[in-house]
């Protein structure tokens, strides 16, 4: 009979990822590259918002985009065609989020010495990406009007880890029972530090304010 014994571990499943993420953040800081991690539910307008943002800032700094999806490369193509900036597609192979190791593998495909900003478009999901630190310098998330003003109450962790919340699709506000003040209050309840920018990626309204905020963050970093 084999000897049976118990090995005590007591270690968080996320501990390794957090260590990887901190190391990646330190390396990026040294290289003076700002990594923005953009998260949201599927269909909230991440790619359209990015196109609006990039076309406003691409003349002022050197940037690239990493698109993370379970499969397909429509987003990377769309970004490249609409903005002309380098854009690569990462596949998570069924995983619902990116972790720091996968982010690093993506960054290895970019010319970091000649970049100031990398935007990571995370997998569309309000749960898992919030749990896994990617090593980003800032976290942004998009909540779109059709999703409803109650999402900060339902997905608290996502709103807690974000530095900035973009409330997208404000052009359709008249057609939805979306209470902007209530939504802002719910976000502040979860995260009093969060910056909130209502905008429309379709019309471009409000994107300038977000762009200025981002450029400020990059210059302070």
């Amino acid at each position: 009979m084999d000897e049976v014994k118990i090995i005590e571990i007591k270690k968080s499943v996320f501990a390794d990822n957090e260590k990887d993420a901190d190391a990646l953040r330190a390396e990026l800081k040294k290289k003076k590259v700002f990594l923005l991690n953009l998260m949201s539910a599927p269909g909230s307008g991440k790619t359209t918002t990015l196109i609006q943002l990039i076309n406003r800032i691409k003349g002022r700094l050197r940037l690239a985009v990493m698109e993370a999806d379970i499969d397909g490369d429509v987003d990377a193509h769309k970004i490249r065609e609409a903005t002309g900036v380098p854009s690569i597609q990462l596949h998570t192979g069924g995983m619902c989020h990116l972790d720091a190791e996968m982010t690093r593998q993506g960054l290895d495909n970019l010319d970091l010495d000649n970049l100031d900003l990398v935007i990571l478009e995370n997998v569309g999901n309000l749960v898992c990406p919030a749990e896994f630190d990617t090593g980003s310098c800032a976290n942004a998330m998009i909540l779109s009007v059709p999703e409803g003003d109650d999402k900060p109450l339902k997905y608290p962790l996502m709103f807690t880890v974000c530095d900035v919340v973009l409330i997208n699709k404000i052009d359709v506000l008249p057609y939805f029972d979306f209470n902007m003040e209530k939504c802002k209050r719910y976000i502040q309840l979860r995260n009093p530090e969060a910056q909130i920018f209502p905008l429309s990626a379709k019309t471009g309204k409000g994107v300038e304010e977000f762009a200025e905020w981002l450029l400020d963050q990059i210059s302070e970093c």
């Binding site: 049976v4 014994k5 118990i6 090995i7 007591k10 968080s12």
Partner: peptide, 12 residues
């Protein structure tokens, strides 16, 4: 908020 591996029961 824990997601921790506490211990393993193993044979060697």
């Amino acid at each position: 908020n824990e997601v921790e591996i506490k211990e393993l029961v193993v044979s060697s």
